[in-house]
Design a protein around this nucleic acid. Structure first.
Length: 200
DNA sequence: TGCCTGATTGCCT
DNA sequence: GGCAATCAGGCAA
């Protein structure tokens, strides 16, 4: 079967549209332990100099440099002393924006996800940005990785291997989670009625 | 169900 | 030194 890996051009759109476009796409990670994959059901956009909540707000630093690079790369940061969060870099080279992946519907490697997280509730394996990286085995070692190449890559929402009940899901826009600044912007998007989002 | 808190590390002020 | 794009568990209702 042909795998529909996303192309470079997919990422060449403004960050909000990229965020919405990523809903329904498949995130895959292939490690020596095995392969895990899930459908992206929840994302958040982080913009640049007009978004005080964004890591890119204060400009380029060593730790946020992936956001300022070309789009479609893995911007991974360590948070609260124990979790990694995965973003897809967005916007052209030189502009610091990104899309945080907040929740997945697990598809492949569910047993491995359970082993990694210690949870047996499928709905709770990947329903949060720190949880999905743990379940998928993603850490800082993949920082800057090009998300159209192995081991960590994205498949089109049309990939035939991952048939979904509703191929044209409705998208809900809400405020982003866990912020102290720029709380009011409607930059969080999730698939309506999904049982796998972090919160309604 | 929902609020509150502790855990634990690195970055930026 | 403060705080962060988090999470699980405890407790009240």
């Amino acid at each position: 079967m042909v795998r529909m890996v996303l192309t470079k051009d997919f990422f060449k759109k403004d960050t909000v549209n990229l965020a919405k476009s990523l809903l329904g796409c498949i995130l895959v990670n292939e490690t020596p332990e095995g392969r895990t994959a899930g459908i992206i059901v929840e994302v958040e956009s982080y913009l640049g100099k007009n978004d005080p909540a964004s890591h890119a707000f204060r400009g380029l630093t060593e730790s946020n440099r992936v956001m300022f690079g070309p789009p479609g790369r893995a911007y991974i940061y360590f948070i609260y002393g124990m979790y990694f969060c995965l973003n897809v870099s967005a916007a052209p080279d030189g502009v610091g924006e990104g899309v945080l992946l907040r929740a997945l519907e697990p598809m492949d490697g569910i047993e491995l996800m359970e082993k990694r997280t210690g949870s047996e509730n499928v709905r709770r394996l990947c329903n949060g940005p720190g949880k999905l990286t743990r379940a998928m085995g993603i850490d800082k070692g993949l920082a800057g990785h090009d998300l159209i190449t192995k081991p960590l890559y994205l498949l089109s929402a049309d990939d035939p291997k991952y048939k979904r009940q509703n191929p044209e899901p409705k998208i809900v826009a809400t405020t982003r989670v866990g912020l102290s600044r720029a709380k009011d912007s409607l930059l969080r998007f999730y698939i309506k009625d999904s049982l796998f989002v972090s919160r309604k």
